[in-house]
Simulated assay, not measured.
Amino acid sequence: MTEKHQLQDNFSSLSQKKLEQETRVKDLTAEKKTVTGSLDSLSQKNQELEGKVRSLSDKLKKGTCEGAKLGSSDKLYISEGEKSWSDSRQYCRDRGGDLVIINTEEKQRFISSFIKHSVWIGLSDRENEGELKWVDNSELKQR
């Protein structure tokens, strides 16, 4: 009789654990469905962003990036081949511009988002060694 009670207790305990596991499976299934939906959404956004990056890269390879707006009328130009800082600045000036001045975090993030190699920016200490100034003569402001 004692053995029968023990078996019944074990059965009840296992039945309770089974119910708990079934509930856990239902919860995990619902969570998986939510995560899968989020993953699909992120994958779609990733594809859109990759398309934009490809488009910008194609424009950069052609030497201009008119779609990459830094300000109301800013354009980025990328030259073919390596150039010195002075030659790069002249390249920009020949096109009516100058080397880029990075004066906001937003501009820094924007440029960093698609530039994958070394580039010259409009910052130098050519006039006074150790005193960095932008090409518009403004001083470098460090945070």
Rank of each mutant, 00 (worst) to 15 (best):
V119A: 11
E20C: 10
I115P: 05
D27M: 12
L60S: 13
E22K: 04
E3Y: 05
F110V: 06
Q8W: 13
Y77I: 02
T34L: 07
S84K: 01
E80P: 04
T34E: 11
E31D: 12
W85G: 01
L60V: 11
R95Q: 09
K52E: 09
G67V: 11
T36V: 11
Y77A: 02
S88W: 04
D27P: 00
E82R: 00
E105M: 04
S118D: 15
G97I: 02
T2M: 09
K83V: 13
V119G: 03
R109Q: 15
E20P: 03
R54F: 10
S84T: 12
S38C: 12
D40P: 00
R93A: 14
K45P: 07
I78S: 01
K17G: 00
D40M: 09
N10Y: 07
K61M: 10
Q6I: 12
G63P: 02
G63I: 03
L39Q: 07
G96Q: 03
D58G: 12
K45W: 05
Q44V: 12
I115Q: 09
V35H: 09
M1L: 10
L28V: 08
K83R: 13
T104L: 05
T104P: 02
K116L: 12
T104N: 02
G51D: 06
E31V: 09
D9W: 11
R89V: 04
R24E: 14
K107H: 01
S88G: 15
S72V: 06
E105Q: 06
T23A: 11
E22H: 03
G51K: 01
K116E: 14
D40W: 04
E105S: 08
L56S: 07
K17F: 03
G51L: 02
E20D: 14
E82I: 08
S118A: 14
V119D: 02
G71L: 02
G96I: 03
D58H: 03
K33G: 10
V25F: 12
Q16R: 08
R24V: 05
E105G: 08
S13T: 04
S113C: 04
M1Y: 14
L70M: 07
T104Y: 04
Q108N: 13
Q44W: 05
E80W: 07
G71E: 04
A30Q: 09
R95N: 03
G51T: 07
N46T: 13
E50V: 13
K69Q: 14
G97P: 00
L19H: 07
G97F: 01
G51F: 00
W85F: 12
S86M: 12
K17R: 06
K32W: 10
R89Y: 13
K61D: 13
E80I: 11
L49I: 08
Q47G: 05
Q47D: 14
I102Q: 03
A68S: 05
D94F: 00
R95A: 06
E105N: 08
K59Y: 07
K52A: 06
Q8D: 15
R93P: 06
S57M: 06
I111C: 08
G81W: 10
L39N: 05
S84C: 06
S112C: 11
S15L: 13
V35I: 15
L99Q: 02
K59L: 05
S55L: 04
G96P: 00
K26A: 14
F11S: 10
D98N: 14
R24C: 11
L70Q: 01
D9M: 13
E22W: 00
